[in-house]
Structures are given as C-alpha cells and as structure tokens.
C-alpha cells in the first residue's frame, strides 16, 4: 500500500513545474505549445483533488479542462486564419 502523501506531493510538484513550464518553458512562443503545457498543472491539480477525495469536483474538472482546451485551440485556429500576429 503506497502512502497517500506520495500522490499529494507528486501533484504539488507537477503543478509548480507545469506552471513554470507554461510561463518560461522552451518553445512557448508558439501558442499551441503553451496550451499543451497547461495540461501538466491540470494533471497535478487532479492528483491533489484525488488525495482530498473530491470525486465530483475531479470529474467536472476533467470535463471543463477538455472544453477549455477546445476553446483555446479554436481561438488559435481562427486568429491564425485571420492572419493575426501570435
């Protein structure tokens, strides 16, 4: 039986490293890379929810993350089609 704190601290580390990667990481000039980087703190936050047993919040968060990614990618595609500077 693994200690539950492992999941908690893995989640914390993923959230911090992922947000650092989204802000300063390599290749973030490209908005698609930046959007993909935001998935890492999302996974870390899911692990934190899991340690707290927030089941409904976890399910809703996964659904909301998918929708947010779709919205952001749609914005990128439409702005690129208009020839905006990204």
């Amino acid at each position: 039986m693994l200690d539950i704190q492992i999941w908690f601290y893995t989640g914390c580390a993923l959230v911090i490293l992922g947000s650092l990667g989204t802000v300063f990481g390599p290749g973030v000039k490209d908005p698609v890379v930046r959007i993909l980087n935001t998935e890492i703190p999302a996974v870390g936050l899911s692990l934190i929810f899991l340690t707290y047993n927030h089941t409904i919040a976890l399910l809703t968060f996964i659904a909301a993350t998918v929708i947010i990614t779709l919205i952001l990618l749609r914005a990128v595609v439409r702005l690129e089609e208009m020839g905006a500077e990204l």
């Binding site: 959230v15 947000s19 989204t22 802000v23 973030v28 908005p31 930046r34 959007i35 935001t38 703190p41 999302a42 936050l45 947010i68 952001l72 914005a75 990128v76 702005l79 500077e85 990204l86």
Partner: peptide, 14 residues
C-alpha cells in the same frame, strides 16, 4: 501578446 495572456489565465484559475 493577448493570446498568451489568455492561456496564462488558465494557470491562475488552477
């Protein structure tokens, strides 16, 4: 860049 600011808003939400 406005689009980058929008993506970073997601991090603040987290």
């Amino acid at each position: 860049n406005d689009l980058s600011v929008l993506i970073l808003t997601d991090i603040v939400g987290i």
